[in-house]
Design a protein around this nucleic acid. Structure first.
Lengths: 167, 167
DNA sequence: TCAATATTGTTGCATTTGCAACGACCTTTT
DNA sequence: AAAAGGTCGTTGCAAATGCAACAATATTGA
């Protein structure tokens, strides 16, 4: 009888709580100052490193569902932070790119969020930090592998995987 | 010009992605087998360790907003997993407790979720794991302190803190 | 070449969420 | 003891979310 269980010490719970806490702290930066959602912030941040990209490109690298990216981009466009042009080679694709205004906003936000990151990084030793990242990557890999291995018990109902769309 | 920024290496982003991934994996256990949401699972899990508690008690220890707990409890009651009785000493409070059925469901779920935890724990060394937990706690403390220190720039609009309800 | 199939991005829709307002109840003050 | 103020849990409502369906466009194969 495993009536022994402590939620507070349960790894997934701890992880979720910390992640929510960090997200809140972060959203307090870009949300308050520029009225951006998490999705919008991620899209902007990704665009900084890449040139013009499609919704599909963004989706994969930013870990957001398709409709969420699409809506984030639309809103960012309304605010003049990104540009949406029909792709000239493939008519379905949309070429999304940062505007100058978007770049300016990022230049304001990035130092702030880097400040949050620095606060966290400085609160622990460098080796601890390195270990933390290493563990995160390890788990990421483990979960990816697990997920890839177990679409045999699929079709059970309530299957959360994405439809016929995954690359 | 800090046009240097890599989202993939950004700690809060990494944390959020990992947390979502773990949550998905976990929800695949209790969600698929017993049709429970995260909130419902957390409430159940907490009840296992405590006796009869109020919504307010749960809220604090389980990191969920008041309405979310309330709704989770209602649904759990509909399914016969918890019991809701009016508190006899204070008429506002509600005494929430596990039913036998709820305990039985937990006895099914807990081994499964502990299995997930074990998978993760075994993927890294014991000292790495200890470090990971230590870092999480450290950051948790840092963010708590920060948040407590900065209700001076409140009233900016879009303030995410909870209304006149926090203890 | 034209039909059949696949992919891209958007929209609809049902559900979930966060926040505020509310009613019910308790406590403190006068 | 009544009024004023505070706390608890629920409900309403607007916004966000996840998923499927869709139109538009590409690609493939006969």
């Amino acid at each position: 009888m495993p009536s022994e269980f402590n939620l507070s010490a349960f790894l997934p719970y701890r992880l979720a709580v910390l992640s929510e806490q960090v997200s809140r702290r972060l959203a307090a930066e870009y949300g308050r100052s520029h009225d951006l959602s998490v999705a919008e912030w991620r899209v902007l941040a990704h665009l900084l490193g890449s040139g013009a990209v499609s919704v599909r490109d963004i989706r994969g690298r930013v870990n957001l569902e398709k409709p969420r990216v699409s809506r984030a981009v639309s809103r960012l466009e309304r605010f003049g932070l990104v540009n949406k042009a029909p792709g000239d080679v493939d008519g379905r694709l949309v070429a999304i790119s940062l505007t100058d205004r978007g770049r300016a906003v990022l230049d304001e936000i990035i130092p702030e969020v880097l400040g949050v990151q620095r606060t966290l990084e400085e609160a622990v030793g460098p080796e601890e930090l390195a270990t933390f990242f290493r563990v995160m990557e390890r788990w990421h890999a483990v979960l990816d592998r697990e997920q890839a291995e177990m679409p045999h018990q699929a079709a059970t109902l309530g299957d959360r995987r994405q439809g016929p769309d995954r690359p």
